[in-house]
Design a protein around this nucleic acid. Sequence first.
DNA 1: CGATATCAGATACTAGGAGTATCATTATGT
DNA 2: ACATAATGATACTCCTAGTATCTGATATCG
Lengths: 187, 187
Amino acid sequence: MSARGRKPDPTVDHRIRQAVTGLVLSRGLDFTMDDVAAAAGVGRASVFRRYATKRDMLLEALAGIMNAHVAIPDTGSFEGDLRVVVSDTLALWHHPDVSRMARQVFGEAGRDPAVAEIIRTGMRTRMERSWIVYERAIERGELPPNADLWMLTDMFAGFVAYRGLLDLPLPEPEQIVQVLLHGFTPV
Amino acid sequence: MSARGRKPDPTVDHRIRQAVTGLVLSRGLDFTMDDVAAAAGVGRASVFRRYATKRDMLLEALAGIMNAHVAIPDTGSFEGDLRVVVSDTLALWHHPDVSRMARQVFGEAGRDPAVAEIIRTGMRTRMERSWIVYERAIERGELPPNADLWMLTDMFAGFVAYRGLLDLPLPEPEQIVQVLLHGFTPV
DNA sequence: CGATATCAGATACTAGGAGTATCATTATGT
DNA sequence: ACATAATGATACTCCTAGTATCTGATATCG
């Protein structure tokens, strides 16, 4: 009753995943399925045996990439915590490879709802992981208890993504922090 | 010395431009060159005689679309003016066709720097057209004279584009206005 | 008018990449 | 040994952008 015949080679799975992740990070979405097979040192057919379409393959890879680690700051004040997050994010975007990849993936979200879904989920997960930061801020009275935290993060993420997508320069972290905290009206 | 031979038919140019604009508005970027020729009632070759590549064709169409009219409010207060702009923009995004088209075009900016350039230029033009709104606000003391107005608009545009790209709901205009003016800290 | 230049439409071609189908080969279980 | 199933290689099909060519229409020059 048990399975006969040659077993799927787990190193093939692994090599393909590695190759895809590497290619996405280094070349965005501009690579062919032959590139994947070549980079993995694997037959082209074995790639299509794992993933019915290139899209399926990319979706898995993107979900993995979105899961990368994020640091959760605890500086003692919300302003300080926010400064850390903003600085870290901006630093990440200043890597040319990262921003190019992010641009393409973000762009793909505009045409493929599944990519949008992955980004949405990834961002939600990240947000939930750092929930404690906001709880502390509310406890300290630095944020109103009913603050729309999703809007706060989306406002920041959106601004960075927008400038990044259009290849416009990003301001200093401090400036962003001040605007998020106090808006544009005069002090 | 003057031009001999049959003259270019201006109605052909016009019909092609119309067809492209219509297709972009109704189908984003998902159409073939045959679609264009068919919609224009024109030979496929005539399309390629006008535009060397599909990309060139799209760039012209997008530049035209970006030039659509924007109203310049004058309600007497910056908060009022801002409310108008925010409401108008959100209303526009609530048309499913508009948001789908915008998503795709925005997405394309992630891979094609020329598309990004068109959006950049279009936004800059719109911004310059409504400069008077900000001047009045500064005169009335509602904005500091050194306010980063580009950041203000990009923060808003970025937020809307981000939520739109990821198909997330947009909040009420009033909430956005308050955040842009006063940030997230408690009053 | 007639020669010639240029445009329009139609059609067949090339190029490149995703996805499919086939086949011989190799590994595993009975 | 034999059946089964995965592997790599290769040769397809399909789609669409872009090219090349042919025929016919229309305008200008002499």
